[in-house]
């Protein structure tokens, strides 16, 4: 469904990606692991069009999206839940969700999709009319995911959904992510610092170091891999 081949990208003169290649097959949860600065977020930014690759190809459902604008990419079916959530804090929860469906024109379906998001995250339904700034960190993360789902994506890019959240909340959110993936057949590319958590729900994993893929295997194999265990799983 998604494939990156030898993708390079830079911020000004600082090279962030030095030849990333990865695949995300339909219906899978693929996890991207690595330390800070390894290029995990940049990979997602390159896919969603925020960062333009200088070299290599990014294909989504067989079409190259290297030079496609972020707006078009959303329309094609890729939603990005960015690092730090980036919700619209001055708008209400409802307005955030409606913006998530900005590229869609099917009014009635949007309404029922909002209800579906509320069924995944009931607390958002309770706070629909509140300003998003008033939500807790976990609720903001739920809103960010909910907003991304509103675009009816076939591929969801999730950047560090666990960041700054209590472990219990993290487990709850990951449970919901897994459910959504299964129910809707959604493909998910998950960037996560917490490797054990990520590998617990992923089918496949990529390990990034300084902008390149250094290891690539099934989640199960990675969990058993000695060096992964020592460096990223911590036991």
């Amino acid at each position: 469904m998604l494939s990156l081949r030898n993708v390079h990208a830079a911020y000004g003169s600082v090279l962030a990606l030095r030849g990333i290649s990865l695949e995300a097959p339909e219906g899978n949860i693929v996890s991207v692991l690595g330390a800070n600065g390894a290029g995990k977020s940049s990979t997602l930014r390159a896919i969603s069009g925020l960062l333009r690759p200088s070299q290599g190809t990014i294909e989504f459902e067989g079409k190259s999206i290297n030079r496609t604008s972020p707006e078009k990419i959303v329309q094609m079916g890729i939603s990005h839940v960015p690092e730090g959530r980036q919700i619209f804090t001055e708008l209400t929860v409802m307005e955030n969700l409606r913006l998530g469906a900005y590229t869609r024109r099917d009014g009635d379906a949007i309404k029922s999709d909002i209800d579906r998001v509320f069924s995944y995250f009931p607390v958002l339904g309770e706070r629909a009319k509140q300003q998003a700034a008033l939500l807790s960190g976990g609720e903001q993360q739920m809103l960010a995911i909910g907003r991304a789902l509103m675009a009816k994506p076939r591929l969801l890019l999730l950047d560090e959904p666990s960041l700054g959240l209590a472990p219990m909340l993290v487990r709850e959110i990951f449970g919901i992510i897994k459910t959504i993936s299964e129910e809707q057949g959604l493909t998910i590319l998950l960037v996560e610092q917490d490797a054990s958590l990520a590998l617990s729900i992923a089918n496949h994993g990529y390990l990034l170091e300084t902008g390149t893929v250094v290891l690539d295997d099934t989640a199960e194999q990675l969990r058993g891999n000695e060096s992964v265990r020592r460096s990223y799983l911590g036991y």
Binding site: E71, P82, Y102, T103
Partner: peptide, 13 residues
């Protein structure tokens, strides 16, 4: 007006 990155990500031109 609030957040351009997020706006791009939801598909606003």
């Amino acid at each position: 007006a609030q957040n351009r990155t997020a706006s791009r990500l939801v598909g606003i031109p």
